[in-house]
Design a protein around this nucleic acid. Structure first.
Lengths: 334, 334
DNA sequence: AATAATATGGCAACAATTTATCAAGTCTCA
DNA sequence: TGAGACTTGATAAATTGTTGCCATATTATT
């Protein structure tokens, strides 16, 4: 591959001039500039980004850590981040943490050792203290879907409690009062906050939270089917089921159908996230829209603004979920 | 951040010795080694991977180009690649091509300019000739789900024709003869080959391919619903619908249900890919399993073997799809 | 034409490592 | 005790850029 030396030689200019042409910070006459550009084209010169990184101490790469690479939720998030950064000539280095503390930490170390200019994390297992300490290091840290007071300027977060509230309120508004709830793992902040919102809506409506109609799932399909099975096996009485995410809702829907339930007449089900396939389930899944792709874009914009001095970007750190009323939930019929 | 100089100073050994400890190619006495390791630990030294890359001409990064970041298909593929590479201390740089020729080329250039040690491509719009020329460059190129004869050693491919054949055969075996087909964009090799398999199965069964029962979709949900709408609007008679992927099948299923079809009694539907949510649709989607995660792992292994001299890895370049019989297709009832 | 402004050259230092070489020192074992 | 093997030091060159400095050359302005 051609180097800057070969370009300078072919163009008959000095090394410094080639650099000036590339970095656009000093004036270069049009004539000279053209000579250099021609030489570059002729040699097929591409600056070696590794050498640039070493010399300029800027790798133009942003590390991303997500829980899993598969799964529609993270896919949308990454798509949002990547498209925004890519347009700015930055690239993403992606790794996974599997919601386990040691793997998340290992992934973070990995990204830092790669000298990413910033890292965007969707971490669940690692503690707030760890994150605060991490932020004191030299690599800027941004958090997705997690709010840490001390790092609030670097958090892009969703009002999960509001989402949980909206979900349950929509069910209450349809006349249901016997409401089962399948939560996500409670160490995950969003799962916890969604449950808080659920309780808030119940309280507001004067309905008591029934601990027997509460099950902690794993955020996967199986969590939903197991949860519903549990409620049915216990012969509990309920007319609606609120799930803390769409995967669990789809698992529950499948289990319900297989056990003779007519949805939504026999049971109203509501999910959370508005994952792509929610609209293709049968019945179409009522859910809470989680604007995760937009949040991903915003995280990228925040990095572009803070780290890459892209001044005039407007940042919004808080996103609100909205209800997507579809066919899996319906007014209570007596 | 600490450098190798500081480590050598603190450990009281020479620079060369520190390098020897890190690169394990020359013997170093245990005592000296320990001194160096202690110094590293004390300083929190992490080798600067950028400088390593420049000096060793190896970036330990593998570029991946997929069509889209969202979508369950690519998610599984990337998950397969990433987990395998990550375990070997390599990382992935991901970008997207959106199935458009110029964007795919731009993405490839981008990855190469980043000096990836290898690139794994899932490209659809770019020509075979381009890929052949690309392979003559200095960056090794690997292709996912695309077979190019001249690059066969670098292709990880699925027998899409067999898959198409299996899908249609399973429908024929259930007694259907009026079979509609929603294809994917025909410039995509896998879409083309699936159709070939479809025709092969028809021919074998003595059923004529009916061009009026043929629609080209876009591989998204809307392609499926539009395709089925087209067939219905044309008042065509058919008892089964074969779709070239699961997204289109799910779109078709939704459209069918909304128009009063009782699935699978009124219409058998089969998809392709066995995407995660296929099993959560209603009825559960009969489909062709596409072992894309395994193929991703294998692509990673191939890179590890070829590029990173990881000798004893067993490589399998060809994968076979299998039928997943579920509830969306059923024997023809007269 | 003199002065000022701009453009360019040439050089050197620097970024953090790898790799190679040679010499010198230390140890082992017969 | 001495030969040979092993270990380490010291140094240098290479990787491909960036950045800054100052001197010189070229062009523009008045």
């Amino acid at each position: 591959m051609a180097t800057i030396y070969q370009v300078s030689e072919l163009a008959g200019v000095s090394l410094a001039t080639v650099s000036r042409v590339m970095n656009k910070n000093t004036r270069v006459s049009d004539k000279t500039k053209q000579k250099v550009l021609d030489a570059m084209a002729q040699l097929g010169y591409k600056p070696n980004s590794i050498a640039q990184s070493l010399a300029s101490n800027c790798t133009n790469s942003v590390g991303i850590l997500v829980s899993e690479l598969h799964g529609p939720f993270f896919a949308q998030m990454m798509a949002g981040i990547e498209s925004e950064l890519r347009a700015a000539g930055k690239h993403v280095i992606i790794t996974t943490g599997h919601s386990e503390e040691d793997k998340e930490q290992e992934g973070i170390e990995f990204l830092i050792s790669r000298r990413c200019d910033a890292i965007i994390l969707h971490v669940e297992a690692v503690s707030d203290d760890y994150l605060i300490k991490l932020s004191q290091g030299s690599t800027p840290v941004y958090l997705m879907s997690r709010y840490v007071e001390q790092l609030k300027d670097n958090c892009i977060s969703l009002d999960n409690q509001l989402g949980g509230y909206l979900a349950t309120k929509s069910i209450l508004d349809q006349g249901h009062t016997q409401i089962a709830y399948i939560a996500g793992p409670q160490f995950k902040a969003d799962a916890f906050n969604r449950l808080e919102g659920h309780k808030q809506a119940l309280t507001e409506a004067g309905v008591k939270f029934d601990p027997t109609l509460y099950y902690i799932g794993d955020f996967n399909e199986t969590g939903g089917s197991k949860g519903l099975k549990h409620f049915i096996d216990e012969k509990l009485s309920f007319t609606a089921l609120v799930c803390a995410n769409d995967e669990m809702a789809s698992g529950a829907m499948k289990y319900a159908r297989e056990h003779g339930y007519n949805l939504p007449n026999d049971l109203s089900i509501i999910g959370f996230d508005n994952v792509i396939f929610a609209n293709y389930l049968y019945p179409t899944l009522t859910t809470i829209d989680n604007p995760v792709a937009k949040m991903g874009e915003m995280a990228a914009k925040l990095v572009l603004k803070d780290v890459y001095q892209n001044k005039n970007l407007v940042i919004n750190r808080f996103f609100e979920p909205t209800l997507m009323q579809r066919d899996s939930s319906a007014p209570l019929t007596v």
